[in-house]
Amino acid sequence: MSANREKLLRVEDLVLHFRTTVGTVQAVDGINFDLDYNRAVVILGESGCGKSSLAKAILRLLPRNVGAYSGKVYLGGSDVMALSDEEFRQNVRWVGISMVPQAAMNSLNPVIRVGDQVAEPAMIHMGVKKEEAMKLARQMFEHVGVPEDFLVRYPFELSGGMRQRAAIAMALVTAPNLIILDEPTSALDLLTQANIFNVLKRIKKELGTSFILITHDIATSSELADEVAVMYAGQIVETGEAKDFFPAPLHPYAQMLMASVPRLRADQDPEFITGQPPSLINLPPSCRFAPRCPKRRDRCEQDPPIIEKDGRKVKCWLYA
């Protein structure tokens, strides 16, 4: 096994189901994808398609009502699913993969100085002294464009954009190879969003970090993405290079999703997808998008295989 040929992350048949009183929620249902060093993949999908659950499954941040949880996650070639919870906490979380959770800017502790919070993961996960950790925090503030004197301020003294930057600095401080960002800009204003994405682009260039970007904001995500994975009802239905995907998506769902994005000075009004995504309980054996798909045929009664086409993968009978 040549370690240097291994990709940064490889996810195989990842499954995460939740038990509820009304049935099993198949939030993550057989996900396969990989990601190389210094690359960014954006996971696109509507609310409730399981994209945040995918992040939780990769980082093993599980609630109590987990039903099935299986599959393989290789980080730098080693299978992290085989690790015990304590090994996972010590060797993977923060040091291998860190996460900027949804609404991270509101998840800072209001009574602790921002600098101390950003330094904390370094002290806990890298075992460095407070002084050293604060030095790292200062460096990270520089990377994300927060003035140094903000280290001693409290979260309420920072604007939303600045707090979001601090949350990103926190994810960076342990120097992980991979950062998972869950809706990093959805609560922010347009101009602040643009600034945050510039920060992420700079980090990727300067530090070589890889990103998994989970979002429903298609237009903004195209700023950072090298690759795209489209999720629908717990499954990935299309993956490919961003430069191929954005101009011409293959899967009917991805095509309709792209057509619904309002564009500036467009000739046509944006379209919409009729119906709504299926409940993740009791999913049909057919293609999960079939009930809403304008290109549906008889064959769609069966679950479509993943088909490779010009280096892209699409889960649709149209390309069989």
């Binding site: 347009l190 101009l191 969003q193 643009a194 904001d217 298609i218 237009a219 903004t220 195209s222 700023e223 993405a225 961003a242 430069k243 954005f246 101009p247 792209m258 994005v261 564009r263 500036l264």
Partner: peptide, 13 residues
């Protein structure tokens, strides 16, 4: 003008 220029375009090309 700044607002207009910040509007993301869903096309990396």
């Amino acid at each position: 003008r700044a607002l207009m220029s910040a509007i993301p375009i869903p096309d990396p090309t």
